[in-house]
Computed example of a mutant assay.
Amino acid sequence: MFRNSQEVTSCRITLPLVLSVITAVISAIFAGVVFKRWWAARSDGKQRPHLLAWSIGLALYFIGAFAQVVLSFVWSPTFFALWYWSGALAVAPWLGQGQSTCWCGAAASPGTFKWRSSSSAR
């Protein structure tokens, strides 16, 4: 029935599947909330780069959790690469960047947030 040697696993509801779905939903909501806080602060003229870094990290975490949900149903090298890249490699640097920027200010991480224009600094 399936070509290209793809097999669909049984559609049993298991604890890892339930936890992956819950993780994906919560991380998507949390990423949206943090991004909304960054956007509101940006609209008020405040510099809060740690919120942007955290929202990017949480969005990457969502991608990893969503890929895990997909992988529980069907094997896909693309979703495995997404799961591995976003979950194992990309989340920690963004969350760490946000944390160090929050604790020490933007000066603690030179070069990372240079996209800010000089006109926005008041």
Rank of each mutant, 00 (worst) to 15 (best):
S119E: 15
V8R: 09
P49N: 03
G105D: 00
N4L: 09
W38L: 01
L71I: 03
A31H: 01
A88D: 12
A28N: 08
S120L: 06
Q6W: 01
A108S: 15
S117Y: 08
M1D: 08
L17A: 04
I29M: 06
I26V: 15
T78L: 15
A108G: 14
G32M: 01
S109L: 13
Q97P: 04
V18H: 08
A108P: 00
R12W: 09
L19M: 10
V18Q: 12
F62Y: 05
S72K: 10
A59L: 10
L82E: 01
A92E: 04
K46Y: 02
L52D: 00
S27Q: 00
C102G: 08
M1R: 05
S43F: 08
G105A: 00
K36Y: 11
V33C: 04
T23E: 12
V33Q: 06
A106T: 07
A107T: 03
G45V: 07
L82D: 07
R12D: 15
I56E: 01
W38Q: 05
W94T: 03
Q99R: 13
R42H: 11
V34S: 07
A81K: 02
F35H: 14
Q47H: 14
W94E: 07
W39Q: 13
L71M: 07
A88T: 14
A41H: 03
S5F: 09
G96S: 10
V91N: 00
R116Y: 11
V33M: 07
L60R: 03
A108R: 07
G105F: 06
R37N: 12
F35P: 09
W39Y: 14
N4R: 10
V18W: 11
